[in-house]
Design a binder for these strands. Structure first.
Lengths: 135, 135
DNA sequence: GTTGACTCTGTAGTTGGGTACGGGGTTGAC
DNA sequence: GTCAACCCCGTACCCAACTACAGAGTCAAC
């Protein structure tokens, strides 16, 4: 299977495959006599694994670690679990942060409906009450 | 007020101020006879506005827009509200995405507690059941 | 045997928000 | 008048995960 065929099946850019190879995420596939990459059919599943893991929030470095684990010994499962739980905790943190941002913003937007003096914008004032300054 | 004093008061790197100036976020302050930037005291509030807006999830481009609005006409309030609501919607989307990732990951980690055949990792299998491939 | 679509390589650019560095000039206390 | 501590500028670098490009080679159909 050639580069663009594989890329097409998985829905990634063909350059991305070369990038993954450079990065060590994909092993170098065999080459045809003309020097073209010739991927085995299993490469499709491998790439889908990578994409799925990315969707779950793993970085490519972590994906690489997962791939090593996958062919690893009996302790691998625990390591994988650790990675996944670490990801989970990180996601929880990020969700909390975004939620805080969202709530603060909602408070600000709510000020828009308050009666206000002529030309003053409650929202902008609320972000910082003393804004005059350099510009 | 000199660059590093301002930076220190707001808690940013002094280089960041030059960066904001290059970007057009801060106007060029007056200079001393020796060519040093001499910020007015109000610059502290301005920078705090910028940092606060960043914490709320606004990009620097959006912050710049907010700053323009702040000195703008009576319609500015509506524009500002629009920007804020757009940010809110974006945050909601991102929160939902992360929540989905988190839930999927939780499902995977749950498989870790299931009884499993000797050396196979349910978590890794669950991400993709057919992983053998190129590496 | 020629055309056109594909592939190869190395290198460089993208995004956003900074940070770092080198080689110089200024300030102010001693 | 000397010294350290600051500041100037332009430029290059950082992160992650791609994406683009130029110039060359290959393949398959006609």
């Amino acid at each position: 299977m050639r580069t663009s065929e594989l890329a097409g099946q998985v829905g990634v850019n063909a350059e991305t495959l070369r990038y993954y190879e450079r990065r060590g995420l994909l092993n170098e596939p065999p080459r045809t006599s003309g020097g073209y990459r010739d991927y085995p059919p299993t490469a499709v599943d491998l790439l889908r694994f990578i994409k799925r893991a990315q969707e779950l929030g793993f970085t490519l470095d972590e994906v690489e670690e997962l791939l090593h684990l996958d062919s690893g010994g009996p302790d691998s499962c625990d390591v994988a679990r650790g990675l996944a739980e670490h990801r989970q905790a990180d996601l929880e943190r990020r969700i909390r942060d975004l939620q805080r941002m969202h709530d603060s913003l909602a408070d600000l937007v709510a000020t828009c409906d308050r009666p206000r003096a002529d030309r003053s914008c409650a929202l902008l004032e609320a972000i910082d009450p003393h804004t005059e300054a350099t510009r």
